[in-house]
Design a protein around this nucleic acid. Structure first.
Lengths: 392, 392
DNA sequence: GTCTTTTTGATAGACCGTCTAACTAAAGAC
DNA sequence: GTCTTTAGTTAGACGGTCTATCAAAAAGAC
């Protein structure tokens, strides 16, 4: 049965619109919010009044434009309205960020993780408590968002992490019980794509793909103005797209997967095979910049293979933008020419012509900020997702 | 600026829900429609009253369930409410279908096409006039939907058809001026996917991919309950996904595209290269069934290559269902084993495990019925109130 | 300094939705 | 004939957005 659509649903939708407009434009006036959202000024007034009453928005001493007419009163998301928590959960490290409801970062915490998923969840719980304590004096936690390098289903169960040995854990339920706050949890790359959309380089882009490298290689699809999760929640597994038939064996049991060539560990392994023992991707990139022909050739191959996979995405999904994040941004400038050559060879010209290719500006906080994005969306559309319906 | 959301928008949404529920369940009662759509019975009553007043719905002599209580009054989409026209426009043949607003087929027309896009458009215009004249006595045409084997942008301009030499033609505007009815026009495979969703095998599926072979190979993506068009409208170009590095040259200028191996002409060409001169795909399939090892090996390769491309789609989009249509359904049973082997080798296990693979039941009318689907959706969600539309 | 102009923001009232609750209608059950 | 049950209608409550109007507050004209 589909959710009911009534006046309350409309209001909720318009509250979300105004909230995001104000988040993107701090110190905006009511009149400006009306222009930004397309809402009537009477409606805007009603919505803003509600947000003020709810304590989510407050009047500020914004800089006044010295203009003719009655001066506007500046508004902003109230820092006292509560906290959001975002986290990246990985076996080696757990990274936690707390922000205001507007997404302004308050605290960073980084702690060691655990290869045991249960222990890792406990550590995350402790870390969040610590980060929240450091952030506010009695501020309520409005939502916790977590990104995990694993196949996550739509109910927040960890289904499988091929490289980590994690499987079948109802981690969302577990954390929600422990934390006593709403928990939103998803694949780390999907979370990062959301961060790119809300805080990064894709704010006005309705259709983009996000590619990231870390232990593996992940893809996040933002299609038609929504994060696309797929039937089971597993969409975007670009790391396991075959780029070399019968190629290198992968942790997933197949062969020739993209991530057996372009993940950090894969690049280091290939470098070692060619007689270059390097500690990390930074060293690899440095060697390439120093003119080491073997390493340059290797990164050329990396770019080419990434380009093949991206070409598939371009041909299939016709995105307006492709974002390279995670480790991929470290070496991006070195392999970009090869990647572009691969695009020219494999992507259909009219689709490639208007494709923009950018490096993520979010750095190592992309995934935790993705958690913030998930929590923010979850908090705002908590009761009922009308947006979905109205987009059809 | 986003579209305004007000009470009228809610009503429009609920009208659409009720309409589709009634289309899928002819002779349903108001009470049943309320249960199907989740709407309150008062709301259902209001919506049905409006639809009756507008003449879109009529009371029928449906079979009455002999049950306790007041008997229901059966409803149905009124055949007198108008016509929809669907068409497939190709250089060789133009196929036209007319239906009621409910999608019940009234007339089929098939006429020769033209390799000149302008001439083809004129022929389509004439053919539609003929089909409409044969269908109804003064029934208004509520919408015309057309599927074309070309890259179509979101405004209904034909951008490029690599194989046909067609490019840059504002065909939607042209037809709309000529026909005097709203025209909805899209890539043929996208249209066929819509047909599959409204009339075919995907009625309850929110996430599926549609693969079809004709002159080329096309893909239609239905993601998250919507037809996905991509940033420019070009999404789904699976025919130009590279499946063989440096493989056979393609009309698009690249090499190794899927459609250079699995389109009908490509299969015939490959058969000829191997000493089997066969007239069409039916003959190829027959030869394979008769045990011709060369042809069997060829179709195995076809299945394998299709499987590689489908694996990319599965890994990237995690669909619940993949539909094979067009020519692909002719030989499907022969190459299906090879296709499944390719899926096992290239698609991630948790994504493949729950994937259903089916052959389209719509046959050669898939694209024209897709036109019907486009026209129906267009008519229902036209920005104007339905009443206004009916006055045209 | 005063008046006019301009813009912001609030508010009343029209209008249009859905939903609750009460009602009427029409059949079978007894 | 009366009761029970289900279908469908309708009045009224409630809550949205939108139009129109008004008060407030500043700059500019004089």
């Amino acid at each position: 049965m589909s959710p009911r659509v009534n006046s309350a649903a409309i209001r909720r939708l318009n509250v979300i619109r105004v909230f995001h407009a104000l988040r993107e434009n701090p110190n905006a006036s009511q009149a400006e919010l009306g222009r930004l959202t397309g809402l009537d000024k009477a409606t805007t007034s009603a919505v803003v009044t509600q947000l003020l009453d709810d304590g989510l928005v407050e009047r500020t001493e914004g800089p006044r434009a010295r203009r003719i007419g009655r001066p506007e009163t500046a508004l902003a998301i109230a820092p006292s309205a509560g906290l959001l928590v975002g986290a990246r959960l990985e076996p080696r490290t757990i990274r936690i960020v707390t922000t205001t409801l507007a997404g302004t970062v308050l605290e960073h915490v980084q702690i060691p993780g655990s290869t045991d998923i249960g222990t890792a969840a406990d550590l995350l719980h402790e870390g969040i408590d610590r980060a929240v304590a450091a952030s506010g004096e009695g501020l309520p936690v409005r939502g916790v968002g977590v990104g995990i390098p694993a196949l996550m289903d739509r109910e927040g169960r960890l289904v499988l992490a091929p490289n980590l040995g994690w499987r079948d854990t109802p981690i969302r339920a577990r954390l929600e019980a422990a934390l006593g706050a709403p928990v939103y949890i998803d694949n780390d790359t999907k979370a990062a794509a959301m961060a790119e959309r809300l805080f990064g380089v894709c704010r006005d882009v309705e259709d983009f793909v996000y590619l990231t490298g870390h232990s593996g290689v992940g893809g996040g699809l933002f299609l038609g103005g929504r994060l696309y999760r797929g039937a089971q929640g597993f969409a975007g597994e670009v790391g396991h797209v075959t780029v070399v038939p019968d190629g290198r064996p992968c942790g997933c049991g197949k062969r020739g997967c993209l991530e057996t060539y372009v993940s950090e560990s894969a690049i280091l392994a290939q470098a070692a095979e060619r007689g270059r023992d390097l500690p990390d991707l930074g060293a690899v990139t440095a060697a390439a910049r120093d003119g080491d022909a073997v390493v340059i050739a290797l990164l050329d191959e990396v770019g080419e293979r990434l380009g093949i996979a991206l070409s598939h995405m371009v041909n299939l999904m016709n995105p307006a933008l492709a974002v390279l994040g995670g480790n991929l941004s470290v070496a991006a400038d070195v392999f970009l020419p090869a990647l572009n050559r691969a695009l020219e060879r494999h992507a259909l010209e009219p689709l490639r012509r208007d494709l923009r290719l950018v490096v993520s500006p979010l750095g190592p906080d992309a995934v935790p900020m993705g958690g913030i994005a998930l929590a923010m969306e979850g908090f705002l559309s908590a009761p009922m997702p009308v947006e979905e319906l109205l987009r059809r």
